[in-house]
Design a protein around this nucleic acid. Structure first.
Lengths: 282, 282
DNA sequence: CTAACTATGAAACGACTGTTTCATATGCAC
DNA sequence: GTGCATATGAAACAGTCGTTTCATAGTTAG
């Protein structure tokens, strides 16, 4: 939390004049004040003139007071590394308290995305973006998520198909896939056997396959020749949390958008316009 | 964490003009911006004129923009420097970097669940747990989420129905609802008009209604006589993130489970056994 | 189609902010 | 004491910000 301004002040503190030290002390004590107060106000608080304040910031090496504020603002936006959040221990009761829930979700998120390599992401995005057709699969509890993924991706690229969850008919639906198509699977524990079959089929058809899954299935996915995107979904309770899965899919969609550039944006705008027409504003 | 400004905006959101809504949305998404940005800058970010911005704040009941800033400043002091995770500013490129994504999701999660009152949660859980039948609705982009909610809830209680998104047929589907049934709606911005109609119908049928929504629609939900569960979904990019929505639904499901106790657990185990039978282990 | 109304941005205006200039005060060397 | 250097505030100045006015585009009512 050491801002560049604070460091600069500390270096020169002894060589500052009395009035300047008043300002310096205030800023070291409450670093955020720069963002919210004007130079005049700062001067007023410690009882020096505006002129002194102006000189102070110039003497620190800034061109302007505006310069100071812009830097401070910018520094706050890229605040340092996210602190590691500990996963809460097993809750005795079905203690679904709000703070516990929040902490669990934060822990899952940090684990998930600190582990995700950004080149894996761009690689996946590249393949999902360029495939002629994209098939999305999610069985049982993941069916809703898969549907959501399909909706999201269909907004930024054409030919996104949902493989229905009617057991048995998936073969017919996937039959029309070609070797350069891509397959996006959402499958967590407990791992449905059917997914293994689908992955094997995808491998023989030479489909590019990405599987959003949990850590326990990562190795299995690799064994099937697919790329895993690992999401931590553990909870103190009995049910897994799909939160990180959705977050991962959102990130993937963003990456695909970035890869496709204007193409995706135009498609998205087109769809937005269409929606607006169909459902008159409001 | 609900500032007075945010509340004031939420109350009047629907009566705002298009340009004003752009400003309102920005301020709800990133409440701290008022402290650091000038009104001119705010106007510039969302692409409206300074004049509109000035009118906007006056229409909200403030004398001045300065008035706004003073109040915001004062409130922050009262809240103390609880510097939570800051929301990153607009990314220039489609810069969907992993760390940025993580930070955005963390910010949304903390905002969402620090604002959620635990008695609201238990109240909602009580009503969703005890209703004879539970109906789940989600239109357009939220259809997948709704389906997921239905799956999740159906594991812990009987008679959970998904109202299909076929426009027009919802009336027939909801026709069989009774006065003590409950309705769970997922609806974010842009608010579909159809949802308003459904909420009005629910009110006259005396359904208990819970709406998972974003801050811009909270007041509207209350006006329809329903209980809002507010999720922060803002992102630097163009697409909203449904992550917190899913997290909220997970929490609600947990709370319902806690309320139902052994009943829910037995049902869940039963279903797990069934699944295992249908899809032989592994 | 016209009239009234609303929403909006461009531009004029006044208020305020930050910088610079200048005169004064303070401290130190001699 | 005088001379010199530095620190400081008052005031002049230039620039920016927020407000208001006014003209225009878009919408609604009749």
């Amino acid at each position: 939390m050491a801002t560049r301004l604070a460091l600069r002040i500390q270096e020169r503190f002894e060589s500052l004049t009395a009035s300047e030290r008043k300002l310096a002390t205030l800023l070291l004590d409450r670093p955020d004040e720069i963002l919210t107060f004007s130079a005049t106000e700062l001067a007023g608080i410690v009882g020096v003139s505006k002129a002194t304040a102006a000189r102070f910031f110039r003497n620190l090496g800034y061109a302007d007071f505006n310069d100071v504020r812009l830097q401070a603002r910018e520094e706050r936006n890229r605040t340092g590394p996210v602190q590691q959040v500990p996963m809460p221990a097993e809750a005795p009761e079905g203690a679904a308290t709000v703070p516990t829930h929040l902490q669990v979700e934060m822990a899952n998120l940090t684990r998930t995305f600190e582990q995700l390599r950004s080149d894996t992401l761009t690689d996946v995005a590249e393949r999902l973006a360029t495939a002629p057709r994209l098939w999305v699969v999610g069985l049982g509890p993941e069916a809703g998520i898969a549907r959501h993924a399909r909706i999201t991706l269909a907004r930024i690229r054409p030919a996104v198909h949902l493989v229905s969850e009617n057991t048995g008919s998936w073969a017919e639906e996937l039959a029309s896939t070609g070797p350069t198509d891509a397959l996006l699977v959402v499958a967590l524990r407990p791992w449905p056997k059917l997914i293994s079959a689908i992955l094997d089929f995808a491998r023989t058809t030479r489909l590019t396959t990405v599987v959003v899954t949990d850590p326990t299935n990562a190795a299995r996915v690799r064994r099937h020749g697919a790329t895993p995107l690992i999401c931590h979904v553990s909870t103190p309770g009995p049910e897994a949390s799909h939160t990180t899965v959705l977050s991962m899919l959102h990130l993937v969609a963003n990456a695909v958008t970035a890869r496709l550039g204007g193409l995706a944006l135009r498609r998205r705008d087109l769809i937005a316009d269409l929606r607006e027409e169909l459902d008159p504003q409001e």
